[in-house]
Amino acid sequence: MAVVTLSRADRALQRAAEDAQRSRRSWAVSVWLGRLCLLVVLIGGWELAADQHLLDPTFTSKPSAIARAWWQLAASGSLWHHTQYTLTEFAVGFALGALLGVVAACLLTLSDLPYRVLEPYLLALYGIPKLALGPLIVLWFGVGLLPKIVLAAMMTFFLVYMNTVVGIRSTSGDMVNVMRVMGATRWDLYRRLVLPHALPYTLTALRLTIPIAIVGAILGEFLGATGGLGYLIYEQVTFLAVDKMMAAIATLAAIVLVFRLLLLPLERWVNRHDKAIGGNG
């Protein structure tokens, strides 16, 4: 008798687990179906509305025309040509801004007085909308790659600097004291304790600044350039070539997406110890 009830309970339990799994699976299925439907409706609706002249194709273009424009740009090599400009500006500016941000954060946290004196100036500079400096930067550095690199670096610098300072400041004082007692020099302290501790903060800032560094580069291209995806977009206004503009915008979005996705695993790898530390209390 007891065995029978046990097996019945077992079965009920098993059924409940299966139910939960099934409902989870049905959730995933419905979400993916929903995404697919939405994609079809959006693109199909857009295409149809443009064909039926509910939307004016001169202004909104349509998916098939955009795909054709993208393919033409890609096949003629001009897409890659412009992408190279934007990628170079972004990569150099981003790297420069990030490096300067980390170095500035280290230097200013070395002792208290320079930090307290300089901090309000950095904050005031941070308060100036950096994109608004675009024309000034162009005035100073011309229309080559340099002004875009400077703009991208400026967009990157402040967030990286501020996050790194927060990371450095949140290093536990006890640990610093322990290392000091054990005879660590300031260099040891930064290399072994402070910087590894600040790294996750810096990485978060890096991920957040990817899109805005590209924004800086593109604004620079709007203000005066000979190449780049921003230049490509800006140039098409005169021709009302909305399909080419959309194709270039989609390429930009893809670039941003790829860089963000590339940084995610890196961030996870850096944070890999967090769980263990949390688990130990």
């Binding site: 593109i218 709007f222 995806l229 800006y234 909305v242 503009m245 959309m246 270039a248 941003v256």
Partner: peptide, 12 residues
């Protein structure tokens, strides 16, 4: 959509 750099849609 979030990945579109905000400035880029200006000309559009």
């Amino acid at each position: 959509v979030y990945s579109i750099p905000s400035v880029a849609i200006g000309p559009l």
